[in-house]
Nucleic acid binder design. Structure first.
Lengths: 337, 337
DNA sequence: GAGCGCTCTTACAACGTTGTAAAAACGAAG
DNA sequence: CTTCGTTTTTACAACGTTGTAAGAGCGCTC
């Protein structure tokens, strides 16, 4: 059975030196006689010693973990089926593993849960927080800031505050979609927006609408969706009723775009011949969709990695002023438009 | 700025009692005079005290975290785009949050990474491991067992060993698919299997083939896939070449089934009129697919929650003998077959 | 009113590490 | 042969918590 783990003390006794010397051999090997080093290393080998991380954390005040918090989203379980969060996780995990830092996954979908997250971090269970917060009214960023927890946000905060964040220029994304559809000669262009209480949705739509206006289209029939497939399908149905002669749809994410394509097919409309469809994100559904989606690429994994990078930098040298890094979207032309 | 966190000592001084008394108020409130309790609570309120989890862990030898390890899968990043892992994560997170336990996400896709996982757990950074290991040759389960780390596996281990696990009866799943296709009057039934070095794939296929044999079909044309959309499409192409008059396909997961449907459409074949398609898992693509997939439901979230439950039970009362819980699959009839 | 059994509270020693200040070892220089 | 620097090693006090054994307070009984 797993006998009790050996400690520094045990190693020191076997090597015939003091705890401190062993400690110095284990971490940065400064000022230790090479011969002694060898002896100590042997003793470590012999005992199978492995430093106790908790004890180390207690004195260094560093745990080597960060919290990855998904905040704001309503239903806890659906979150992980949305490709967006999977990609964020992938980007974060991939970056952190190169730095021997481990992410603790937390959901902050209720007030109770948010309190728990703040407590967790105040208790020093993690060194900082990576916060994916979609709703601008989310109180969590402010609460973490107030608690003095080093944090970096994915997406700019709802109200200005001194905190680092990464983001993408969603307005440019909207503009790219508009430019593409207009250049393709579409006239009856419509949109399925994301939930309007989400900043990214607002920006995507504003960018789209502004560009359309510049192209001479003062009004864009729009139905608000909820970033889910069901909401996308419902929105498409309504658009077809309100605007039967539409020849293009800009959907604020790929999930809704895919659902829209299905609805169009059900109505006997061909994509892109009758109706052009542009999505947003360039995530898995964009490729799974038939026809494959023309979409606006958001480099989620890179953005997420950058977020982790900013946090580690802040942990390394605390007290720097907040930073922001904004990524540029990119039009990916496939078959749907 | 965030002043240094208050400690038990501070609270004790303000309340005019000793550290131990405060400690007893904070956790299970046994044997403390109600009046004193009130005083202490006020002091806690006043200082904004929150117990330091690391210090607590050092003495209790419990961290309140478990490692959620994704092992075996090749590419680190794709993992999280596979709906399966998202669902496992959702199930685990959802269960654990009710128990104030937090999952640390780890990828074990290389030997180096596996060593890091074992070290992490031996160092006491987490109380136990939830291991999603797909390849039977994966050395991680054995190494964790050897290191005395409490663990529970998703899927039975490659070789028998005394460790708890949860699983589903994949053979029954294969049988359900075969029965359904035969009952629907299909004659030229084919299969796209999962990667054959994965136990779940073997079982699904074996169950399918055995049932087919019982129905009088001694041979099932089969192409091996890799659980990805691309591999599913490639497999479907090959099947169409080798077996042009096929009228049914059983794909070992929904991702491949969806890709197969697309390929069939490209060949001008209608689903289900010309070819029936049955998937496996009942994950998001099953609903996104047109027509929606008839599939074998695997209750991934419930299985994952059960896995977490077993681990917590083992942590609660260590040294019990290993347990296994096997779930039953279920046929979900939709439009594709 | 001394002794006894309660309940409640308090010191104190862990837990396993790191960092600092003091001590020992060892040459080299005067 | 002492004195002084330099390098290496050691002892000891943290870090913030919990658990245990000893102690204080207090109402009973005899």
């Amino acid at each position: 059975m797993s006998k009790v783990a050996p400690t520094l003390e045990d190693v020191a006794r076997i090597a015939g030196v003091s705890r401190a010397t062993v400690s110095r051999v284990v971490n940065g090997t400064r000022n230790v006689d090479p011969e002694l080093q060898e002896t100590v290393r042997n003793a470590i080998e012999q005992t199978g010693y492995t430093p106790n991380r908790v004890a180390r954390s207690l004195v260094t005040r560093r745990t080597g973990t960060v919290a990855l918090v998904i905040s704001g989203a309503g239903g806890g379980s659906d979150v992980f089926t949305d490709p967006f969060f999977g990609r964020v996780t992938a980007g974060v995990v991939d970056f952190l593993r190169g730095h021997s830092v481990h992410p603790v996954l937390m959901l902050a979908d209720s007030d109770h849960a948010r309190t728990e997250v703040v407590e967790f971090l105040r208790q020093g269970s993690a060194d900082g927080a990576l916060l994916v917060s979609t709703h601008p009214a989310d109180p969590l960023p402010a609460r973490l800031l107030e608690a003095g927890v080093p944090s970096v946000l994915y997406a700019r905060p709802g109200r200005p505050m001194p905190v680092s964040y990464v983001d993408m220029d969603h307005r440019v994304g909207g503009r790219l979609a508009a430019d593409h559809l207009v250049a393709a000669g579409r006239y009856n262009i419509t949109a399925i927006s994301g939930p309007m209480d989400v900043l990214a949705s607002q920006d995507r739509h504003a960018g789209f609408r502004d560009a359309m206006a510049r192209h001479g289209f003062p009004y864009v029939p729009t139905v608000e969706g909820g970033f889910t497939a069901e909401s996308g399908a419902a929105a498409m149905h309504r658009l077809l009723v309100e605007c039967p002669d539409l020849d293009a749809v800009f959907a604020a994410n790929d999930l809704m775009a895919q659902a829209a394509v299905d609805v169009l097919h059900e109505h006997g409309l061909r994509v892109p011949d009758d109706v052009a469809v542009v999505g947003f994100d360039d995530s898995a559904p964009a490729l799974a969709c038939r026809p494959q989606l023309t979409t606006i690429r958001q480099p989620v994994e890179r953005i997420a990695a950058q977020m982790a990078d900013l946090l580690l930098a802040d942990l390394e040298k605390p007290g720097q002023r907040p930073k922001s890094v904004i990524f540029e979207p990119e039009l990916v032309v496939r078959a749907s438009a």
